Computed example of a mutant assay.
Amino acid sequence: MKLTGGKDVTPKDDIAEDDTGIEALSKAVSKKRNYVFDNAGVKVGDVLTYSGDDSITATVVAPKKILFEGEPMSVSKAALILLHREGYTWKSVNGWQYWGLDGQTLSERLSTHQADDNDEEDE
């Protein structure tokens, strides 16, 4: 948002022309591998923060589930709920890009932990 003077220019609708394009887009944004929170150094009981609003939190309750608004669900489902409230009409998102811990998204934490694991293997 620094490049746009603080204005969010992210398209609110899926950017595909037809159902085939939307299906391809959904596959492209889906995770390539099925990770659990532990892969990113996140433990049951940790409190995650939504990247769009630091006052929105969820608690990790299982290896792949958070408790969000009183309901256990995936981070992707919770992110999609919040994005829909913000006016986005996307059909799927990678929740690991929208939830985080200690100032890093889960995706960033995963990359860091994978790099650390690779460094340990090289030693």
Rank of each mutant, 00 (worst) to 15 (best):
Asp13Arg: 09
Leu67Asn: 15
Gln104Ser: 13
Val47Trp: 02
Asn94Gly: 12
Ser30Asp: 15
Lys2Met: 13
Leu3Asn: 15
Ile81Ala: 11
Asp14Gln: 08
Thr59Cys: 01
Asn39Glu: 15
Leu25Phe: 11
Ala58Gln: 01
Lys7Gly: 09
Thr20Ala: 14
Met73Ala: 09
Arg109Ala: 11
Val61Ile: 07
Glu17Asn: 11
Ser55Thr: 08
Tyr98Lys: 01
Gly21Glu: 09
Glu69His: 06
Asn94Trp: 02
Gly5Leu: 02
Glu120Leu: 09
Val93Pro: 07
Met1Gly: 15
Leu106Met: 10
Trp90Cys: 12
Ala79Phe: 01
Lys65Ile: 03
Tyr50Asn: 01
Leu48Tyr: 00
Gly87Cys: 09
Glu120Gly: 08
Gly70Ser: 04
Gln104Trp: 07
Ile66Tyr: 00
Gly5Glu: 09
Glu121Cys: 07
Val75Met: 05
Lys31Asp: 15
Leu83Ile: 07
Pro72Cys: 02
Lys32His: 11
Asn39Lys: 06
Gly6Ile: 03
Asp122Phe: 07
Glu120Asn: 13
Trp90Gln: 13
Lys43Trp: 07
Asn118His: 12
Lys64Cys: 09
Val75Gln: 03
Trp90Ile: 09
Leu82Thr: 03
Gly41Ser: 10
Thr89Cys: 06
Pro63Leu: 02
Ser92His: 11
Pro63Ser: 08
Ile22Glu: 14
Ala78Leu: 01
Val61Cys: 07
Leu25Glu: 15
Trp90Ser: 12
Asp119Val: 07
Lys43Cys: 11
Val42Tyr: 03
Gly100Ala: 05
Glu23Met: 05
Gly87Lys: 05
Ser92Met: 08
Leu106Gln: 03
Ile66Asp: 00
Lys7Cys: 07
Thr20Phe: 08
Lys2Glu: 15
Met1Val: 10
Arg85Tyr: 10
Val60Trp: 00
Trp99Phe: 04
Gly45Arg: 02
Leu80Asp: 14
Asp122Gln: 13
Val44Gly: 08
Thr57Leu: 00
Lys32Leu: 13
Asp53Ile: 00
Asn118Leu: 12
Ala58Asp: 01
Phe37Gly: 02
Val36Gln: 12
Gly100His: 01
Ile15Lys: 13
Trp96Ile: 04
His113Asn: 15
Val75Arg: 00
Asp18Met: 05
Pro72Gly: 06
Phe37Trp: 02
Lys12Asp: 14
Asp8Val: 06
Tyr35Trp: 13
Thr4His: 10
Tyr35Phe: 12
Leu25Arg: 14
Gly41Lys: 05
Asp19Arg: 04
Lys7Thr: 13
Ser51Thr: 06
Thr112Cys: 10
Val42Lys: 05
Gly21Phe: 03
Trp99Gln: 00
Val75Trp: 00
Ala16Thr: 08
Val36His: 11
Ser55Arg: 01
Val29Cys: 11
Thr105Pro: 01
Thr10Ile: 12
Asp117Pro: 03
Pro72His: 05
Asn118Ser: 14
Gly95Cys: 05
Ala28Thr: 09
Phe68Val: 00
Lys31Met: 13
Asp46Ile: 00
Leu106Asn: 03
Gly100Asn: 04
Val75Pro: 00
Gly70Phe: 02
Val60Tyr: 00
Asp18Phe: 03
Gln97Phe: 06
Tyr35Ala: 10
Thr49Leu: 02
Thr49Trp: 01
Glu108Met: 10
Trp90Tyr: 14
Glu123Val: 08
Lys27Cys: 13
Asn94Glu: 13
